[in-house]
Computed example of a mutant assay.
Amino acid sequence: MARLGQGGMGTVFLGRSPGERMVAVKVIHAEFASDPTFRKRFTREIEAARRVGGFHTAAVVDADAEGEHPWLVTEYIPGPSLHDVLKQHGAMPPRTLNSLALGIAEALEGIHSCGIIHRDLKPSNIIVSTAGPRVIDFGIARALDSTSLTRTNFVVGTQGFLAPEQLAGQAPTPASDLYAYGMVLCHAAGAVPFPDGETLESALELLPSTLVDVITRCLKHDPAQRPNCTQVLERLTRIRQKSDDWLPPPVRTMVDFHNAPTAR
């Protein structure tokens, strides 16, 4: 029905199933499709992604790793990306940040429980929906590792969200996702990118006091000192802030706009 966007692995289209469900169809680029090792790893990742459930991820609907052009179909989640929300409206208020923190941590907990590492958690991979934040593209980036596609200047992940160990060339772990999680919340709070001369410590002062401890621990240089998702959730649920609507009115309008074409 439409083209939603294009990334490093392929192009994503908006589609409609025979049952009138809206879906996102990701078609892999030909340069990757021609590599048999990539296809094998892509198959394994599809199988793993099918196991990921929960309220905060996009479910896999169908896939084909063996066709001329490998493809993956997930449910379509109507809503803007967190990247687009921040670009248009700037830093989010505390109640929104707390809901983002809980929803994204719950999504990562489900992803990690299936033995999957996201590897590219960032605002553009988080959809802001009426039901809360939804994490997309989980685990698929792993299919690019250990294949002939790995080449000079090709990095799995996004600068600014990569953990120190990833920048050092080490294999990512679930703790690497927690570092990216902390950076996502810093972006959502307007704490990064840092103004000239500002340090991380001073930037963290822009965060709600309820999140400073969790995010500081997530951004530890040593991955062994970072909390896991369960520990993050245990900490955040103790300080949950009740709110009738987790989104500010301008962002709610933005989300409603994305829902309108789906209703038609």
Rank of each mutant, 00 (worst) to 15 (best):
R44S: 11
R41L: 15
G90W: 07
K220H: 14
D64T: 03
H187F: 14
L167S: 07
T37I: 09
G132V: 12
I140Q: 10
R95P: 14
N228Y: 02
T96M: 15
A107D: 03
G197H: 11
A224P: 00
P249E: 04
G110S: 10
G7I: 08
R50N: 01
R238L: 15
R226A: 03
A131K: 15
H258L: 04
I104R: 08
T173Y: 06
S17V: 02
N153M: 00
V156G: 03
H29D: 09
G5F: 13
D256W: 10
T173I: 11
I136Q: 09
K40W: 06
M92N: 04
E47F: 00
R44L: 14
R119M: 08
K220G: 04
V61L: 14
P93W: 06
V255S: 02
C218D: 03
S243F: 08
Y76L: 07
A189R: 00
T199G: 09
P93C: 12
S129D: 14
S146W: 03
R226F: 10
T96I: 06
P70F: 01
A188V: 00
V12R: 13
F42Y: 14
H83P: 00
L82Q: 03
A188N: 00
G182C: 05
L108M: 13
P70R: 02
A143G: 03
V192C: 05
V212D: 00
D244V: 06
Q6G: 13
L4R: 13
G8K: 13
A189K: 03
R235F: 11
K122D: 07
Y181G: 02
A107T: 03
A168D: 07
P195N: 02
P80N: 11
A224W: 03
R16L: 15
T216L: 09
T237S: 13
T37Y: 01
R142H: 04
N228A: 01
S124Q: 15
T262P: 01
F32V: 00
S176A: 14
E68T: 12
D177V: 04
I140F: 08
L178Q: 14
A105R: 10
V214P: 08
P172Q: 14
I127Q: 09
V85F: 10
G160D: 07
P261T: 08
F32T: 02
E109K: 13
P78H: 12
S209V: 14
H89K: 05
E45P: 00
A49C: 11
P174V: 10
E75Y: 05
F32K: 06
A163I: 03
C218N: 06
F13L: 15
L14R: 14
E234D: 13
H69Y: 09
T150M: 15
R51I: 04
A131V: 08
L162I: 11
C229H: 01
P248F: 08
A33K: 05
Q241N: 03
A175P: 03
K26Y: 12
E165W: 02
E201T: 13
I140C: 01
T11A: 14
L4I: 13
V214K: 04
P208K: 12
D256M: 14
R16S: 12
L236T: 04
